[in-house]
């Protein structure tokens, strides 16, 4: 337990520093991008006079330097004022929260499904050598298919041709969200499955040939029991790491799937915020996604220690 506490004490400041550096880097890269809110305002109202534009700049604080604006923003964040989204005219949290929930539902389901299926396939490959090439091929395919392509193929087949599932979008209030999750979840899960299948197959076949398993087998333990009670717990460590990395990366990486299926979510929101020069929204979304990623990794590390206390010191 002391190890876990140590890990937390060591990681927390590290995460904080990463977040600060990230926010700085993001602020300046958005600043480096052409076009500011005032030039966007000029496009929507061509009759603005040069004097209007001057005043607008002052109003938006654009007459100040990037760093001064960053400090003002950071001060606000430290006081708990996250500001308003320029794009949606809403407090950023009100925009972010539903998007985060929607993405977590999508990614959470997909990652769990991918891990479940992948591990099952990996176990199959490890236990039945004859199935191994099939599993291998499937994993190869899953890894190689561009996800937006797969998404569109699924839409054509299941929504347009067969009409079984909605082609995308979100359910109306009071309707079940489940049908709307199936295709996007399948799209993400299929791609992610490959990693789990390969790792599980490799780890399990390595575990299954270790002496303690062989001796257990000699004592007459069933294959299924061997797998569940002996091999899987030991193979779980790398799989957990993979799970954590996936979960984090996917929160923002769902962008493509969210676009193809017209689902509102973090990926789409972040993209729009960056493209729409919405500093407050883009920064907070980016930091939130980074935080989720880092927390997922932290959780995986903690879980590893719990499963395998030997990892303790590095």
């Amino acid at each position: 337990m002391a190890g876990a506490l140590n890990l937390l004490l060591w990681r927390m400041p590290q995460m904080a520093i990463t977040l600060v550096l990230l926010s700085l880097a993001a602020w300046f890269s958005i600043g480096l991008m052409p076009g500011d809110p005032v030039s966007l305002a000029m496009i929507s109202d061509p009759r603005l006079t040069p004097a209007d534009i001057e005043r607008l700049r002052a109003l938006h604080g654009l007459d100040q330097s990037l760093i001064a604006r960053y400090l003002a923003w950071a001060g606000g964040v430290l006081r708990g004022e996250f500001g308003y989204s320029r794009l949606f005219a809403q407090p950023v949290w009100r925009v972010l929260w539903p998007a985060l929930l929607s993405t977590l539902a999508l990614v959470g389901t997909a990652v769990l499904l991918a891990a479940g299926l992948g591990i099952a396939l990996g176990a199959l490959a490890a236990l039945r050598p004859r199935a191994a090439p099939v599993v291998d091929g499937l994993a190869l395919l899953a890894q190689a298919v561009p996800s937006f392509w797969l998404g569109i193929l699924l839409i054509i087949l299941f929504a347009v041709r067969l009409g079984w599932l909605p082609a995308g979008g979100a359910p109306d209030a009071g309707h079940s969200a489940l049908p709307f999750l199936v295709l996007p979840v399948a799209t993400i899960a299929f791609g992610q499955m490959a990693g789990y299948a390969r790792h599980a197959a490799a780890a399990l076949s390595a575990e299954l040939s270790r002496p303690h398993i062989t001796s257990a087998r000699a004592r007459g333990a069933g294959e299924r029991r061997l797998l569940w009670h002996h091999a899987l717990p030991n193979a779980a460590v790398p799989l957990l790491t993979l799970l954590a990395l996936d979960a984090g990366a996917l929160v923002s990486g769902a962008l493509v799937t969210e676009t193809v299926f017209a689902r509102p979510g973090m990926g789409k929101l972040l993209y729009d915020a960056v493209m729409g020069n919405d500093y407050n929204l883009a920064l907070l979304a980016l930091l939130l996604v980074a935080l989720v990623t880092m927390l997922a990794t932290l959780l995986a590390d903690l879980a590893q220690r719990w499963i395998d206390p030997r990892i303790g010191e590095r």
């Binding site: 890269s29 923002s252 990486g253 972040l270 960056v274 493209m275 980016l286 980074a290 990794t297």
Partner: peptide
Amino acid sequence: RLADGLLALPALPILVLLAAMDPAK
């Protein structure tokens, strides 16, 4: 630490950010 930091970052939004940057600058 730099590597850890980069690994912890959400890659796609940053790719988008970088891709949208103005090469002329």
